[in-house]
Design a protein around this nucleic acid. Sequence first.
DNA 1: CTCGGTACGTTTGTATGATAAATTTCGGAC
DNA 2: GTCCGAAATTTATCATACAAACGTACCGAG
Lengths: 239, 239
Amino acid sequence: MKATDSRNLHGHVIRELGKRIVVGDLRPGDVLPREEDLAESMDVSRTALREALKVLSAKGLIESRPRVGTRVRATHFWNQLDADVLSWRCASMPTDDFIEKLVEMREIIEPAAAAAAARRRTATQLAQVDLAYRKMEAARDTEEWAAADLSFHDAVLQATGNELMISLFSVVESALGMFFVLSAKTAGDFSYSLPQHLKVLEAIRRQQPEVARKAMQGMIADSLANLRKKRKGRTKKAS
Amino acid sequence: MKATDSRNLHGHVIRELGKRIVVGDLRPGDVLPREEDLAESMDVSRTALREALKVLSAKGLIESRPRVGTRVRATHFWNQLDADVLSWRCASMPTDDFIEKLVEMREIIEPAAAAAAARRRTATQLAQVDLAYRKMEAARDTEEWAAADLSFHDAVLQATGNELMISLFSVVESALGMFFVLSAKTAGDFSYSLPQHLKVLEAIRRQQPEVARKAMQGMIADSLANLRKKRKGRTKKAS
DNA sequence: CTCGGTACGTTTGTATGATAAATTTCGGAC
DNA sequence: GTCCGAAATTTATCATACAAACGTACCGAG
């Protein structure tokens, strides 16, 4: 689910510059080349470049002022929850520090969401969670499983009926995405968390908020433990 | 803290169109007039209009395709957490339903943030929370109090050291903003929540996560009760 | 010598017009 | 009736020009 469409020309420019900034290639305070030069160096017209700059501006990454130019803003101005910013940060192997922050967000968001879902879910919303669970059961490879897992967590968020909560899916998506990448090497055991998903599903079905919350907490705790194990192995291998 | 700068011409267009969409004047599925006509009707060049459309596109509000035109996207595509989208929604007296959702987000975000802050806060971060609290104590009118209150809740978020958490300030800001507006009529008693803020501050100072969490929960619960009381009065008056 | 204001140059902001690309729609051939 | 291609419309992109804003440096007054 890429927010910026890379088919369009200025979409490409957005991604290119956005990544460079988020990754740290361009640092806060740095001023970009003048629009005319930058446009030429990226092989687009100044018009297209400016449309991209406006979008990056809206994401809080840059700020343009006449005469002084366009410069990268301090990180605390960035829309860290923006789907693009998140995906750009995850694109170039994020620091362990950032992964911890993503997991912390999951620990806060998802148990609360599971509880709210158990409290208020409609029949159709429950059916969506159930469907996602059955797709996880039926998954035959990691790719299918990843897609089903994502749709499960999405369905839980949807079942809260709170669109603000639902918009936090981009955070959950990034966290799960990182997890998939780090777990890719040791595939095969990708269904170990199925029972925990079932617990969440059943709690939502039976409308037991606290049970759903605990089940989700457990799932994330396990996921975190697994992540740390993988990471330790990776670090050990690297050293 | 307005994200889009209204000084610029296209910033004005962003706000104008964005509000119309978020408020519901333009409904999902509606197609906007052709760029040339729309630009003329808003007294800007097509260039400026397109820069605005790109930003609204990045916020998920609209989608442009050649030949078919620009149309308003379904609400589930909107970046509901975007500071602009939130402020536009709050600008025209939001529905009670939306206020409930904002409060629910607070109930999830802020207690968790308080706990994390208590766990990890640095000395300087604590000092910021303390400073905000003292500004609340010293506030002489509702305006000063509102500013201090906002900076208190901001400082708690900052103290988590998690930039993803910090970015959720826009949600807290909107929720508090609504509360201030609804409480405006019955001013004077604006300091009743001071003891609760003190509890949070002290728990963070003493690094007691669970105490901080409970204190924050209590504060929000009271705030919600107060809100419902006000709203009932308002509804009764209106009927 | 310092302070302040003014003129100048640079960069973004905005406007205009033209061309390319994409996609729906309509019409014609089979 | 169906399928394929041409046309028309709208966004996408480009090129150019001018306006506005904002440092900066220069100049003059005290």
